[in-house]
Design a protein around this nucleic acid. Structure first.
Lengths: 333, 333
DNA sequence: GATGCCCTTGACAACGTTGTCAAGAACAGC
DNA sequence: GCTGTTCTTGACAACGTTGTCAAGGGCATC
């Protein structure tokens, strides 16, 4: 900026005025400054600007998510960006890949960059930083997971109700012997879904066999192997399965296809997947609406910027069930 | 920081020393300062820190991409994050959703935030800003697309060679009548793929019928409709199709499935998709390796930070062909 | 021609941090 | 006890910008 001022033969305050279109600068000076700006390729330094300015509207918001490979969160991010874009706001996104350590570091890094707000898919690892940041007045919205401490704003799917719905659907189709494949139970959404499964099974008077509850954190290909060997090895086959995450569902579809069991074993998944209609039979699912969750969370965030003392908002969306064939297979025995 | 200094009864320089673990501070002062930091929930302001510091290693890099809904770019981002993470570097990601206007704004915003480097999937819209930023010495790596001006570092798939390979595969299987479905031609990769298709067709002495080259920018569901009505309406059916982007491939698999043509029409796609093995027949593809492209780009970026005068690097990866069944169907006529 | 007003411009402080340097204390060696 | 060295600490400038205020010039009004 100093260089631009020298080039144009004015003080740097005048440059500042021109760059920010404050007005009150004579036309020829404006022109001289603009020429100098163009000649030197000058860009204002956003950080210094924010440092000085008693800015109100956030120019950057942060998004901390858990798994970059999962299309669910990509769609969430898309929803967030759509809303942020209308406010000329950038999204600083970082994924933790399930590591509490990384969650702490990421949240710290974002807080240190003084983002105007934060949307977090939090395991609760960064609770301390998040809470002190909340006290500083930074808007904070939690998404998908309950972080395990008192939370102001939160948006998520009703994981438990969705799992109940899926299980009831299978039970209603005549299945009494249902296997469960899902994410690690230290993840809030995963444990909620298992609780939903157990609740619905219990309500139907059915027993849950521990050997038929398989949990863990794996890629789609790993799940494919796990589910294939589950069906290959166990003498006792369930007549239906409930897969409670999109990778698990993808793996299960592949595995059942490999074993030519897709028309025999009933299957409902949590989260929608691509090509769910192109396989035979189609994959029945409890879909989530990640893009809308993202939009909703971002709107809540900006809302909190504007109205400081608003009541806490908790949005918990009950998901529907989409029948496509795989969930409607009757038990063969 | 001033508050912390007051609370601990020291000067703020001492606080700075403690926070940055510079050493040379007596143990009891360290303890007092740390207590004050904890009590007040103090976080250093990263922006101010960078403003002062003659820092070398970048703390933030930017990634500008074109389509957040496309899993290809999510994987690229993942690769970038993996590398950035090892350098304690955050990734500021923004998607342009194909809008040149948005590309300009995003690149400007990142430059103004003084990112330490930039990985760009650029249509060329922000050429001016990017070039002046390159002159400022900011490391810059282009990914996937040629932006239409002289470029220093670039990583991409060899779109043309991949398309040639796919087309030759279909031609080699006996097909002479092949339809092409792909992205808008003002996108570099799309036009390259079409050129590859045309080249291989020409080399085989085959004619390309303009009515069988369908291009546009659509979602998977839209492509499903387009391809379904293409096969429903035209009296003349091609015996094979080449779909040159993952959404198009997804749509085509669905559409052919809807019409019960998946075992009749040969099909090769560009970009791999989920469940490509679970459908019948499996989907033959020219896969890209987005995560590796991202890793490669990030490594080049950091490399350029370290060695300033390095030669320009262009990495153009020739993709393989994966046979899964759909591409090996013989023409029925 | 003096006064008052507005319009343009620049000097300076401030934002929150780190780098530089010097002051002061503590200690060792003569 | 004096000198020199080291260790701890703080004062101050600087990073690049914007907010505040005052100075100076031009113009209208009396």
């Amino acid at each position: 900026m100093r260089d631009v001022a020298a080039e144009a033969g004015v003080s740097f305050k005048t440059v500042s005025r021109v760059v920010n279109r404050e007005g009150g600068v004579s036309p020829d000076l404006v022109e001289r400054v603009e020429k100098a700006v163009a000649a030197l390729g000058y860009r204002p330094d956003h950080r210094a600007r924010l440092l000085r300015r008693s800015s109100t509207a956030p120019a950057t918001i942060g998004f901390v998510w858990i798994d970059i490979a999962n299309a669910f969160f990509s769609s969430v991010l898309r929803g967030i960006e759509e809303v942020a874009d209308t406010r000329d706001c950038l999204v600083l996104a970082g994924s933790t890949e399930w590591s509490p350590e990384r969650e702490r570091r990421l949240v710290d890094a974002l807080v240190e960059r003084r983002v105007g707000g934060l949307i977090v898919v939090s395991s609760g690892a960064a609770a301390e930083t998040l809470q002190s940041e909340m006290q500083r007045g930074t808007p904070l919205v939690f998404l998908d997971l309950e972080p395990g401490f008192d939370v102001v704003d939160l948006v998520r799917t009703d994981h438990r109700a969705g799992a109940v719905k899926a299980t009831e659907h299978l039970v209603g189709g005549g299945h009494t012997d249902i296997a469960y494949f899902g994410d690690n139970l230290d993840i809030f959404s995963a444990s909620e879904r298992l609780i939903g499964f157990q609740t619905a099974m219990g309500a139907a008077g059915l027993q849950v066999d521990d050997k038929q509850v398989i949990t863990g954190s794996h890629s789609g290909d790993e799940w494919r192997e796990i589910i294939r060997s589950f069906f290959e090895s166990s003498e006792h086959h369930p007549t239906a399965i409930f897969t409670t995450q999109n990778f698990v569902t993808l793996g299960a579809v592949q595995a059942l296809h490999d074993l030519d069991l897709r028309s025999t074993i009933a299957h409902v998944g949590f989260d929608d997947i691509d090509l769910s209609e192109a396989v035979t039979p189609g994959v029945s699912v409890i879909p989530q609406f990640p893009r809308q969750l993202g939009r909703r969370a971002a709107e809540m965030l900006f809302n909190r910027v504007e109205t400081d003392n608003a009541e806490p908002v908790r949005v918990v969306v009950e998901p529907p069930l989409i029948e496509r064939g795989s969930g409607e297979i009757r038990p063969s025995r």
